[in-house]
């Protein structure tokens, strides 16, 4: 068992759910955090004694510091923290709906900072523990379809880089499209399964730095990031 204890925020579906399952399968005690209690209960039923369900909405920022201490107390430690929550409502081209944008800002930025600050503060003091932030390739450029989602992930990447520069061991994961509930409305083909993504994420959890899930993504986004803005604008991607 690589990690004795872990917290996964955003654990009820997709990659988060798979991360909990794979950690618990290896014997890790996991606090699984999400809003949907029934989904968490399924994980508890699958791994009794290893998964602790915590019903929580990441936009309830003020509750987070105390909840974090309670969870770490009950887990008796923390080796791995994964922030996986993310909101990506469908936004039409040229749509500017504040409610949708605010939801993304609350979950992808404020929730992320409120949770990751707790983990980073702890890990800095103990000089122990790994922080994993699930970002996105979408954060690498400002694309016309999802301005706020892109910007929120770019913020998260920069924030995580800053934590690394403060001395915390942080793994920033930049998945491409993964087959989850969040991406289902996109109707994309050839997406990586959540199970496969979780396996790769866990293999990179203790590696300080930014990580793509596929070599092809790494190469593609190396190039995409360097495309000059006037050209990128015309590509319409």
């Amino acid at each position: 068992m690589k990690y004795q204890t872990a917290i996964v925020v955003g654990a009820s579906s997709g990659m988060g759910r798979e991360l909990v399952r794979q950690l618990a399968a290896s014997g890790t005690k996991v606090a699984a955090i999400a809003r949907r209690e029934e989904r968490l209960q399924e994980l508890v039923n699958e791994f009794p004694g290893l998964v602790t369900p915590i019903v929580h909405d990441v936009t309830d920022h003020d509750a987070i510091p105390e909840l974090f201490q309670t969870i770490t107390r009950d887990l008796r430690g923390l080796d791995l923290f994964i922030y996986n929550s993310g909101a990506m409502p469908i936004v039409e081209v040229k749509e500017f709906t504040w409610e949708k944008d605010k939801q993304m800002l609350d979950v992808n930025i404020s929730g992320a900072v409120a949770w990751c600050n707790q983990a980073a503060d702890r890990f800095l003091h103990t000089n122990h523990g790994y922080l994993v932030g699930i970002g996105s390739v979408a954060g690498d450029r400002g694309r016309h379809k999802q301005p706020v989602y892109n910007a929120s992930k770019a913020f998260f990447h920069t924030y995580l880089e800053a934590l690394r520069n403060r001395g915390v061991c942080v793994s920033t994961i930049k998945p491409g499209p993964v087959d989850t509930e969040m991406t289902a409305p996109l109707n994309m083909k050839g997406m990586m399964s959540a199970e496969q993504a979780a396996t790769i994420i866990l293999s990179k959890a203790d590696k300080n730095g930014e990580h793509y899930l596929k070599l092809a993504h790494r190469i593609a986004f190396y190039i995409i990031k360097r495309v000059p803005s006037p050209i990128f604008r015309k590509l319409k991607i």
């Binding site: 707790q118 003091h125 103990t126 000089n127 122990h128």
Partner: peptide
């Protein structure tokens, strides 16, 4: 809440076992 400033990793002298406290 307990001050987060107090948390530290402490180990037995043999360094094989440690805990956050």
């Amino acid at each position: 809440m307990i001050s987060t400033q107090r948390i530290a990793r402490v180990a037995g002298y043999g360094m094989t076992q440690a805990a956050d406290a």
